[in-house]
């Protein structure tokens, strides 16, 4: 077996980590688009690789077909059976994990829709955007009670931006891709942050006051009940970074740099996937 078959996938995953780590300074909308593209590309490359390993190891191919495939097989040599079995097991695990996520989302959406949108009687201050045609915003009376009208406008604008740009689709896709390839957890966190920043920036433009937007976010975050020790204590939320970013300079609108870099990312991801995928697909077609 030749290690080269892992190379494009590994490079793309590495590139995704680098992009998430060293983000170019641009509008968060474009950061989010580029991140989801890289995350999706990496996950697809991993899926393609696993499927390929399974096919190669399970000996679907016969000597006659192998002769037909000729050069292709000579390129790669045989994949040892244990590797193929491991790849198959991983594929099954991925399928289970993705199904679990999908079921969780369905339950959450159903619960949220059962509540309806509007103000809910609850002391804890929170606001939730519910996607979908009949979606909207759920606010707690605690939030309404602590905010001025201008601050409430910030909250509504922020949630409206999430709904307008269908951020839940980015999050769901990103979450599925992370299930496929857990190394993408870090870029996925960067994506979550970029989506929040995107909505923050839209809210700041709509209300025309960055400091007010920053203060609203900070005040609502500080009024949250203290976090349970554990998960959050380690990772932290993005709130401090969001507030700092809003108090800093306005991001460039990236009207040119955004599409250019997005195109570049598209080509990078595409060229990393296509040799692997087309090569694997060709091989599978020949063998079947």
């Amino acid at each position: 077996m030749n290690l080269e078959i892992y190379l494009p996938t590994a490079l793309l995953a590495l590139g995704t980590l680098v992009v998430a780590w060293r983000q170019p300074r641009m509008h968060p909308a474009w950061t989010a688009r580029i991140l989801i593209l890289f995350i999706g590309g990496s996950a697809l490359a991993v899926l393609g690789l696993l499927a390929f390993l399974v096919v190669m190891a399970t000996g679907v191919w016969t000597p006659a077909k192998a002769a037909l495939a000729g050069g292709l097989l000579a390129d790669n040599g045989r994949v040892p059976l244990p590797v193929g079995v491991a790849a198959g097991a991983l594929l099954v695990l991925i399928a289970v994990a993705v199904t679990c996520s999908a079921l969780r989302w369905r339950r959450e959406l159903r619960e949220a829709r059962a509540v309806g949108t509007g103000v809910v009687a609850d002391e804890r201050p929170y606001a939730v955007a519910v996607p979908g045609h009949d979606g909207g915003v759920i606010l707690s009376s605690g939030l309404v009670g602590m905010l001025s009208r201008r601050e409430l406008e910030v909250v509504f604008r922020h949630e409206a931006a999430h709904l307008e740009h269908r951020h839940h689709l980015y999050l769901m896709a990103g979450s599925v891709f992370t299930r496929v390839f857990p190394c993408l957890a870090y870029p996925y966190r960067a994506l979550r942050y970029a989506l929040e920043r995107w909505a923050d920036e839209e809210a700041a433009v709509a209300v025309g006051d960055r400091v007010l937007t920053a203060r609203t976010i900070a005040r609502v975050a500080l009024a949250q009940p203290p976090a349970a020790p554990g998960r959050l204590a380690l990772t932290g939320s993005h709130v401090t970074r969001r507030v700092t970013a809003l108090l800093g300079r306005t991001p460039p609108d990236s009207r040119i740099a955004g599409p250019v870099l997005f195109g570049g990312a598209w080509m990078a991801a595409g060229s990393a996937i296509s040799p692997t995928v087309t090569h694997h697909v060709n091989l599978v077609l020949v063998l079947l």
Partner: peptide
Amino acid sequence: LAAERMFGHLRLAHNPSAVLSQFVHGLN
């Protein structure tokens, strides 16, 4: 809306959901 019909906010606050975007999450 009645509070008791609201889903577990605390669960959501510490385990961010992919479908429901929250304004902010808790802080450490």
